[in-house]
Design a protein around this nucleic acid. Structure first.
Lengths: 190, 190
DNA sequence: TGTACATCAGTGAACGCGCGTTCACTGATGTAC
DNA sequence: TGTACATCAGTGAACGCGCGTTCACTGATGTAC
């Protein structure tokens, strides 16, 4: 059946959005194309009218997730003092509980590293994040502070998600959040 | 064929060791029992003479990986000033390149979080790590410093492994390593 | 404006494959006599 | 010590299942006349 002019583009976007959410929630390997299409009320065969392969979708969905997040972040980074707000958002219980609408790095970084050589998608995602953080931190020389902060944010969210004990999970988030919101001043020496 | 008395125990250990390596390198979902057994010169059917299920093996292998690492760490933590040595080891290129002999958290934490409720294996792994770090940091009150440090270590290793550009990957490791080795003194205020 | 035709997004059965798991079987060993 | 038997770690075919992918087909729509 042929549909109205932009129907294909709409379906394409629906697939990308659903995939982007599922990849971030369940990971790439654990996300099947059949269930994904079914969730959209479509059959799996139609997938290949839109994408060359699952890998093609992964690439597209990750890029889309990145852009979506940049959109959300711009709002935060437009404020007077963006850093505490960003940290609060990143290490919030809401971000922990809804990975499908959050940063792809905690769930997907491990799988991204094991993908084929030709895909610098992790590099792009990380570099973009560092740029944003660098600006928020007022970093003029190098990117040391933003690299350390991104590592800490990603690690803390990952750990808090992996833990079963919800009090322990909260404790991890709370502790790291409070630590990162302290002013970043380097001591001369101990 | 029936083998010598401790033959079964030896095979059991061989399976655990191989699984512990593969889970840490490839993740749980991407590790098949058939290839695993084949790599040990065994057929896959024999697996169920040793384990109730794949989940059973996962539990056992993770616990084994933890103990193995604690053994390695004890050596490091017996030194005079253990913390810099631990940081150097954790954020070394060797640790980045050989996940199969390293910390399970960067590769497996995401998958551990998605496993059934009854498995507090991630909690145990993390608590144990924090205890060790707490001692090395000379932490007397609370565990804030060790939680932040563990988050940063895990995040940095994860990011450095996910990245394709090897210079960028080195840069992440080097930056975080140098940052963490600075004396941990909290500034009064900015 | 009305009709015939071409398009192609989506359908759904089928492909080979590897997964975790089961199971009847084998045969070298330890044990009992 | 020698023989008959029980054990059970390991074998390998088979189970149903879901995966990514292919493909002949459908039929509502846009287009051409």
């Amino acid at each position: 059946m042929r549909y109205s002019q932009d129907h294909k583009a709409q379906t394409y976007q629906r697939i990308v959005k659903e995939a982007s959410a599922r990849f971030r929630r369940d990971g790439i390997g654990a996300t099947g194309l059949q269930p994904l299409m079914k969730a959209l009320g479509l059959t799996h065969g139609g997938f290949y009218a839109h994408f060359k392969s699952k890998d093609d979708l992964v690439e597209t969905a990750l890029r889309d997730a990145c852009e979506e997040l940049n959109g959300l972040c711009e709002e935060v980074f437009a404020r007077q003092d963006p850093l505490p707000a960003f940290i609060d958002t990143y290490l919030s219980k809401s971000h922990r509980q809804t990975p499908e609408h959050g940063c792809p790095l905690p769930t997907m970084a491990a799988e991204m590293g094991q993908r084929g050589e030709a895909s610098p998608i992790a590099d792009e995602t990380i570099r973009l994040r560092l740029q944003m953080l660098g600006k928020a931190l007022g970093e003029t020389e190098g990117d040391a502070q933003s690299i350390v902060m991104l590592s800490t944010l990603v690690g803390a969210l990952l750990l808090s998600r992996s833990v079963q004990d919800s009090e322990f999970s909260d404790h991890i988030l709370d502790t790291v959040r409070e630590h990162l919101k302290q002013p970043l001043v380097k001591p001369a020496n101990a």
